[in-house]
Design a protein around this nucleic acid. Sequence first.
DNA 1: TAGATTGTTAATCGATTAACAATC
DNA 2: TAGATTGTTAATCGATTAACAATC
Lengths: 214, 214
Amino acid sequence: MKNNMKISSAVIKRLPRYRRYLMELQKKNVDRISSNELSSLIGYTASQIRQDLNNFGGFGQQGYGYNINSLYKEISAILGLDQEYGMVIVGTGNLGQAIANYTHYYKSGFKVCAMFDVNPKLIGLRINDIEVLDYEDLDEYLKNNQTDIGIVCTNMSSAQEVVDKLCNGGVEGIWNFAPTDLIVKDGVALEDVHLSDSLHSLAYYINRNRQNQD
Amino acid sequence: MKNNMKISSAVIKRLPRYRRYLMELQKKNVDRISSNELSSLIGYTASQIRQDLNNFGGFGQQGYGYNINSLYKEISAILGLDQEYGMVIVGTGNLGQAIANYTHYYKSGFKVCAMFDVNPKLIGLRINDIEVLDYEDLDEYLKNNQTDIGIVCTNMSSAQEVVDKLCNGGVEGIWNFAPTDLIVKDGVALEDVHLSDSLHSLAYYINRNRQNQD
DNA sequence: TAGATTGTTAATCGATTAACAATC
DNA sequence: TAGATTGTTAATCGATTAACAATC
């Protein structure tokens, strides 16, 4: 990072998207791009692109633009994607299993090391060769296995208790799929995926469009 | 809506969250709340709460605050949750199945009417009594069955083609889980759930916290 | 009526866009 | 060198917060 000024979350939310477009460009063997060209692909203004990137360093070169390979690597490093993360999933219903499979196949740096549930029907099940363990044993597991990320796929009512256990067990980040707002220990990162909220905003825009047609 | 000024998407994204908190308050049989009390629960400033709500109408009463039941109903109506939505899911892998189950159990107004896949192993499968149909038959299905929302749970490379079919088939909204940015027909609402981007921002914050510890 | 709290206007803050000098 | 394009400062725009008159 260029300086130690706090980067706004609006900028951070755009970084993974930059990275996706750079990955596509890499696949197409493009080796350089100007902020203007990138702008017309990604839809942010050229000015915003330059501002965003300059929060982290001067990755471009006047008269040339940005080298795609090196910019891709820089953004990956900024996001911490040059590292590995050990994860546990708590709640092994359909969504928990889907997340397990998804990360297994698509997210190589993020490894699900254990899964937990309270349901005896699920305990003992194997998903991508990871056994579902008894939720009772979560504390013990975290004591013995350094874990970076806890993924919460439980229902609303258990989520906070699960998060407390995960935080006390030393995780550094929570990826929350439970439809509720959670309190995490100081220094633990929290990222919510509120599917319900997302569907509800979609409904809003559908309705607005309907009303505009009248 | 109070007037026909465009409501900013920042406001819209907060509405489902207001609704969640109001639902909780209803469960606790609280019947009124001031913007100040709500502020301390939900974490937005009282001023912001009043501003947000006044985009849609004067739902409160001076000296009293907001009636929880009626505000809940108002917000639900604004979001279009007093209506029913017919949906199809395209891509019936783990994630597609999880979304089908999730909406089936938790989202009563949103009904999955059909699911589609190209994989012969999945075609014919029943999920919550909905049969998985051949993707080949999607156009035909949409012609004969009015569908409000298309849910895209395919991989990146098929997603745009699927969206085109859905848009041409007359859906009004796309709920996209494929890790790519999509182009929708004019007047069709698009809501993305980019799991990958979400996990990547989580990684950023984990790393930032690590670096701050040094 | 007095107290409480909204609805709304004005002030502030932050994020985006524009402009241009620096420089490859 | 001339042309292109960045990095960065300044201007604008929009969103959040503060303040307070209106009113229940």
